[in-house]
Every structure is written in C-alpha cells, then in structure tokens.
Simulated scan of single mutants.
Amino acid sequence: MKILAAVINNIETDQRLDKVCNSLLKFGYDVELIGTTLRGKPILNKPYKTSFIPIKNQEGFKLYAEFNFKLFVNLLLKADKNTILLANDLDSLFPYYLVSKIKNLPLVFDSHEIYSELPSLHNRPNTKRVWKILEKFLLPKIKYFYTVSNGYANWFAKEYGSTPVVVRNVPHLQKLNNKESFIFYPLPEVPPHHKIVLYQGALNMSRGLEYIIQAMQYMDNCVFWIAGDGPLRKKIEQLVLDLKLSHKIYFLGSVSPKVLKTITPLAEVGISLEQDLGISYRYALPNKIFDYFQARVPVLSTYLPEIKSIVEKYQVGRVIQRHDAEHIAEELTIMLKQGKKHYHDNLTTAALACCWENEEPKLKTIFEQIQKK
C-alpha cells in the first residue's frame, strides 16, 4: 500500500517525520513525504520518495490557505484506492480529511502538538478560534490517531473524547564513540577547564532561553552553546550583547540532525527550560530531552509535568523550581560540580528505554489495523 504524508515545515530537519517514514518503508509500504518550499527548498537524499509543494506566501493566513488548497489538489491527484493518508498536525488535517471522504480512504493523524493551544496564538484570539473550530470539528472523526506524550493524549481524550496512541518523539538508540560516523563541524574554541552547556532546538518563545542567558552572568568555567535557529534569534542575540556575554555564549546556527548527534555528546549539561505558556507547552515532551539521553548528557529541566516526570523517573538531571536566573545558575552549578559521569549509568538506562526501537512497534500496530479492515 501507498502512504502519502505531508507537513508544512522543513522536511530536511523534521526528525519525527523522518523516523516515521523510514519505519513505514521498513514495514513494506510505498512512502511519499510531501513538503513545501517554505523558507527555501532543502536538498534531500532520503530512501523514501519526497516531493515539494511550491509556496509563494511565507507567513500568516495566506500561507496556510495556499498550503491547504495546494495540498488538497496534490492529494487528490496522487491518492488511489491503495493509499493510506497520513496527516501531520492540525494545519494539514483538513485537506486530508476531505480527500479521505471523497475517495473513501483511511486517514491517520499524527499530532506533534496541541495546535490550538500554541503560545504563538495567545495574543491572536481570532486565529486561535479558527484552529479551535477545526480541532473540534475534525478530531472526534479521526479513528487512527497518535501523539507524542501522555499529557497530550489525556487532554485530547478529555476535550474531544479521542483516544490517541502515544508514540513518543524519541531518537534511535545511539552508539557512542563511533568514530566512523564522526562529522567535522566548525565549533567555538572552548577555554581550558571550561565545560559546555548546550541548548539544541528551535529558538522560539517560551523555551526559557532568556533565563539561561541571564544565568550565565553568574557562571564561571563554562560556556553556553545554542544549536538552532528561529524567530527569537535576533532578540536573544541582542540580550547577549546587552549583558556583555559574547565571550561565554555562542550561536552555532541551524545544525542538521546528523551533525548534531556528533556535537551533543561534547556537552556537560543539556538545557530544556520550557515555560508554561499554554497547554501545548505544558504537556510537551521535546525530542531534545531524549537526544540528551542518547548522548549521555544530563538535563537541567523545567518543572513542567511531562519533562519533570521523565527526568525524575530516570534520575538524569535536576529540575528547576522557577524561571529565575540566579536559581537556574545555582542548579546548573550543582550539576557542573557533579559532572556528567555522576549520571552516566542512569542516562544509559534512560537511553535504552527511550529510543525509537521501542516506539516503532506501536506505529506498526496502527497501520496493521488499517490493513486488516
């Protein structure tokens, strides 16, 4: 059977979709991933088929309207009676739903977040209302539905009576010290006897980046690397300049997942300090947490329930009590004094438990249920 998956964002750096598509290919499906030319067309070399929808509008309502219309036409032309439709997030679900009804095809939905509760919508009530209406109309109608955390699954169940399966966004089990896979990348020079603190991920609001940057004022003998890019970059670059911390804080820019796997193990501590700005962040379980586990890097984490729960379950770091620069500096100082060897055995246990090899069977079961119909 053929599977048509699509997403509006950059399919080169979307690790979850790459894992899902590779797994479905392994299960014997003919997989095609449809991306867009939003912010450029990436050069891809994937084992599954890829294609792009050209996008003229780069933001706002016109972007989503253009994407949804073109995706609808694309799916209508490509889908046949042997197709399973795989929608990713609410911003692509409506055209998938229409095509599933028109052609009587099975529809699977992967919700990476709670779209109507994203922090970016807090000051945009009209936009939030539109997504909420779509969510309320579509989600109760979706039979095959999976998401990334227990918090999300419980919220969807309470809000819409849905029962999504939890397929966590975790990486493949990673072998450390594999010299053959090492990729050279230009990195900042680290002063002698200094340790590396790392944030990896998108530079968006509510990630706690401002607080860890401010905390660096109180830190000695460590540097802070920021691997990622996003709309908040200029703001936090200015904050670094204002606080005169350019000698301590370095922006690595956007780094491909393959290269990032060689950088993360260099860190002494990984940062995940998300703030409670809406339900979607409150119950988030970011993939960087699990990337840190695979690299055997302990985590200085937020107090939000899903992240706190997994850090405390495996005893692989410390949890802050509040977003306060001095408090964060105190917790980070304790972790740097302990050293990552202190957490190594627990991190290994967490890495073995929290890997894609353990989530993949759940994905297989979902699609096998469809084929039995």
Score class of each variant (00 low, 15 high):
K26Y: 08
K41E: 15
H342L: 02
F182R: 09
Y97W: 13
N88C: 03
L304Q: 10
F69K: 13
C222D: 09
L121V: 07
K341C: 11
P164L: 07
P257R: 01
N123I: 08
G161F: 11
P171V: 14
L332T: 04
K372I: 11
I289V: 14
H247W: 00
F67I: 08
M1G: 13
I289G: 06
T365V: 12
V167R: 05
P298Y: 06
K141P: 04
N74W: 06
L260T: 09
T147R: 08
F137P: 00
A351F: 11
T163E: 09
V223Q: 08
Y292R: 01
A79C: 00
D91M: 10
I212M: 00
D18S: 12
V31E: 03
A65Y: 01
D14T: 03
L176Y: 04
L273Y: 05
L90I: 07
Y160W: 11
L241V: 14
A153K: 02
L239A: 04
D229P: 00
I55R: 09
Q58G: 05
M205I: 10
T37I: 04
S280P: 07
R39S: 14
A5V: 09
Q338I: 05
G60D: 12
E331V: 12
P95F: 10
K26W: 06
E237N: 03
D291K: 13
E312I: 05
N10S: 02
V297S: 08
Q174S: 15
Y281T: 09
D220W: 10
S51D: 05
T262S: 12
Y146P: 13
L252N: 03
K62E: 15
P54G: 08
Y218F: 15
V223S: 11
Y314P: 00
V130I: 15
L44G: 07
L134Q: 15
H342Y: 07
A295S: 13
S256Y: 06
P95Y: 15
W131R: 04
T302I: 01
Y185F: 15
C222I: 12
Y314I: 07
K81N: 12
P192D: 13
Y146R: 11
G201M: 00
V20T: 07
Y185V: 06
G317K: 01
K70V: 08
S256F: 14
Y199C: 01
C355A: 02
Y283W: 09
L85W: 05
I236L: 06
E306H: 13
K341A: 14
V108Q: 04
K62M: 14
L232D: 06
P164I: 09
H172E: 10
V130Q: 12
V240N: 11
F27R: 07
D229K: 02
I320C: 02
Y144N: 09
P125E: 00
V259L: 00
A5T: 10
F184A: 14
D89I: 13
E159P: 02
V259K: 01
Q15C: 08
T36C: 08
I55F: 11
L86M: 05
P231D: 00
T349R: 02
V299K: 12
A353P: 01
G278I: 06
K235L: 01
Y211K: 12
E113W: 07
I183K: 07
A325Y: 11
R322I: 14
W131A: 05
